[in-house]
Design a binder for these strands. Structure first.
Length: 476
RNA sequence: GCCCCCAUCGUCUAGUGGCCUAGGACACCACCCUUUCAAGGUGGCGGCACGGGUUCGAAUCCCGUUGGGGGUGCCA
């Protein structure tokens, strides 16, 4: 049980966990851990979400993926907002009893008409002193006091709002149910939240919440509004237009460490990153250094290209064993893991995401004797020179006696190509296309070594035939 | 409409009055290395939105303009 500050993270379950939410969660998490406090997970379970427990589970899984684990002593929850329904109502009644709220029977239409008449923009406080009680169709409204409300924001400093610009907002609907704003504040009070760290979009509603905290007789929490994440159009990331679901990045083979590191560099720079010439920083350092006061004030574009670069760096940072283990999970079950392990070191440096692994090594796992599917452009280019087919035929001869190590295979190709006055860069092309079907791939001789003598020679022979040349027969 | 926030290379940022000839990262370009492609190395391109102040001195402080974003429901 921790005794420090209590940070709340309150995502609404929608079946997808937003990358922006992930960043905010990370902010709360870093602070909760460093300050010896608690990360309180609260699920804003709507009617819709209550019928889909898998959505809540999705949030927990997503948090776990980025290292925010329910098993950690700094983690509390999940709490469901619906569990506090009675407290929401009780708080509303208390507000009414204390004179901080009043009932109103105007319909939306009537409010609009009155606003038009008086040239106002919203509700005009019509029922403030009409002494109405509860009743069907009566909404409970908060009596916004006169004066100014100042929000002390850890990221932005003091932000002040004229109370006269805030209309008497609804607390309880005509059917008696509480609105989100009220529920939110009551939950925070009930859960003894001390720090509210969330996205900037909530800043304009914060004065209402702070007034509620005060009217309910509590000291408001420390507020912090971090900038939102935007797309290339500079619009808030939206689920419709943009790739915002964390699960989509997981499926694409992005690494949690890379995602976490990248997300944290949006709006904040780890100290020492500039001197080091790298923004790749382990979580331990981030947790030790992250401060709300250092967070930028402007929105940040979520740049997948940079994420990809981070991801490539993290893949390269893996130990060989770890890489084989992680990358192996991307492979079809039928593919021989030992064979993959042999080539793995040669592809580890060539990846952006783990998902690209199968395509890089598939040629090693085609069934013996299967026809190679040549990429047309690769074939045309590799076999355009007239020396290509004859050279390949000579290579077959030379490889018949090879000891079948990468070094030997390379030396023998070099001996052959010398007769044609061709450089290695060019000479390897027809061999590569013949064996892998493509013009690019892992280092050639290492690939051949792993593929094995028989299958390699078979593919070379087939290619010479396909190129219209005379293939030497290969002895059994 | 009203309210709030924001404004440094294409992007993410460092910068809190002199250390700025504005630094780093990603992207891009060139060269080196090289067994294709990568990785790595070196170098390059590229920015303080604009206009007024304040000051000996402003990317940094103030005001305004412009531009962008967000909020403003008996949605959450």
């Amino acid at each position: 049980m921790t005794t420090g500050p209590r940070f709340r993270f309150a995502p609404s379950p929608t079946g997808s966990f937003h990358v922006g939410g992930a960043r905010t969660a990370l902010h709360n998490w870093a602070l909760a851990r460093r300050l010896g406090g608690t990360f309180v997970l609260r699920i804003e379970d709507t009617d819709d979400a209550r019928n889909r427990p898998e959505w809540t589970q999705g949030i927990i899984d997503a948090l776990a993926w980025i290292g925010i684990s329910a098993g950690d002593p700094h983690f509390e929850g999940p709490h469901l907002q619906s569990e506090y329904a009675e407290a929401h109502i009780a708080a509303a009644h208390k507000l009414f009893a204390d004179g901080h709220a009043y009932y109103c029977d105007l319909t939306g239409e009537q409010i609009q008409e009155r606003a038009k008449e008086h040239g106002l923009s919203g509700y005009d406080g019509h029922s403030r002193d009409r002494g109405l009680g509860p009743g069907t169709g009566h909404v409970l409204r908060f009596r916004v006091p006169e004066g100014t409300t100042v929000i002390h924001d850890l990221v932005r400093g003091d932000v002040s709002f004229e109370n006269s610009t805030i209309e008497d907002f609804v607390l309880l609907r005509g059917n008696g149910t509480p609105v989100f704003l009220l529920a939110n504040v009551v939950d925070d009070i009930e859960m003894r939240i001390t720090d509210v760290v969330r996205a900037e979009e909530h800043l304009p509603n914060t004065p209402k919440q702070q007034m509620l905290w005060e009217a309910l007789g509590h000291e408001p929490p420390r507020w912090a509004h971090v900038p939102v994440l935007v797309n290339e159009q500079r619009k808030k990331l939206s689920k419709r237009r943009d790739k915002t679901g964390l699960e989509l990045y997981i499926a694409d083979g992005y690494l949690a460490d890379a995602m976490v590191n990248y997300l944290m560099t949006l709006g904040w720079t780890p100290p020492g990153a500039e001197a080091a010439g790298s923004e790749i920083v382990p979580w331990s350092e981030i947790e030790a250094a992250f401060r709300l006061e250092d967070v930028t004030h402007s929105p940040a574009f979520f740049d997948v290209k940079k994420l990809a670069a981070f991801n490539g760096d993290y893949i390269r940072m893996m130990s060989p064993d770890e890489f084989v283990e992680r990358a192996g999970q991307e492979l079809p079950a039928a593919w021989d893991r030992n064979r993959f392990a042999a080539i793995a070191p040669h592809i580890q440096e060539r990846l952006t995401t783990l998902r690209e692994v199968p395509d890089k090594v598939d040629f090693l796992f085609w069934p013996d004797g299967a026809a190679v599917e040549y990429d047309q452009a690769s074939w045309d280019k590799a076999f355009a020179p007239e020396w290509a087919a004859p050279l390949l035929a000579d290579v077959i001869d030379a490889y018949g006696e090879a000891s079948w190590t990468a070094d030997d295979l390379k030396a023998r190709l070099e001996a052959v190509m010398a007769q044609y006055s061709i450089k290695l860069g060019k000479a390897q092309a027809p061999v590569r296309v013949a064996v892998t079907g493509r013009a690019v791939g892992p280092p050639l001789f290492e690939s051949l070594e792993v593929l094995g003598r028989e299958e390699t020679l078979r593919r070379l022979v087939n290619a010479v035939s396909a190129a219209g040349g005379d293939a030497p027969s290969v002895g059994g």
